[in-house]
Amino acid sequence: MKSAVLVFPGSNCDTDCVRAVEQVIEGDVDRVWHKDEDLSAYDFIVVPGGFSYGDYLRSGAIARFSPIVKSLEEAAAAGKTILGICNGFQILLEAGLLPGAMRVNQSLKFVCKPCKLRVEDGSTRFTTGYEKGEIIDIPVAHQEGNYYCDEAELRRLEDNGQVVFRYVDNPNGSVADIAGIRNKAGNVLGMMPHPERAVRDALGSSDGVRLFESVARYALDVQKEFA
């Protein structure tokens, strides 16, 4: 399969995402510059973390207008697998590919630490490697990770089973302890925690590996179906 990691000015987890994808998923992985306009060649697209455009306005608010985002929207509509991590999640929210918004952490401070997440759904294309209800270790590192949506939206998310990960011990004040959500179709996942930072025991956890494995397994299944 072919993977892409988008690079915006100010992205700083792009290298880490490339390394994680290379480590886990067979096939090529390309860095795609934000001024490019074509993502049609890719099965899996990662929008990495960082501080796109310095996050001087609102996280992700400017990156959302980069040329590449139009083709990201097309890829989402076409059912391609899209993973937004941290600033990538914020960009997906700003682009309207996922519902809700981010506020500054309740502590008003940046928080970087290992974090326990509960897997709410083990059947998405991102999470078949996990059991529903399993507790996994994936670190967080953000200042604006306090996910917010109104009550009606939250009800929709819960009713559709779109909450994929929840914090066991909420580090930022997010609504309903939400750490990661998917879109209704299930092909777009946004999460604040960094699975690409949990891919080797030496880093403190390798629980993130199974997320990338799940994505690869899904691609393989799709391929088989077509074959």
Binding site: D16, A20, K109, C112, A141
Partner: peptide, 16 residues
């Protein structure tokens, strides 16, 4: 203090 610093980015920090 150090939880306000991103000490993990670049995924090479093997002693935090």
């Amino acid at each position: 203090v150090f939880e306000q610093f991103d000490y993990m980015v670049r995924t090479n920090t093997i002693q935090a």
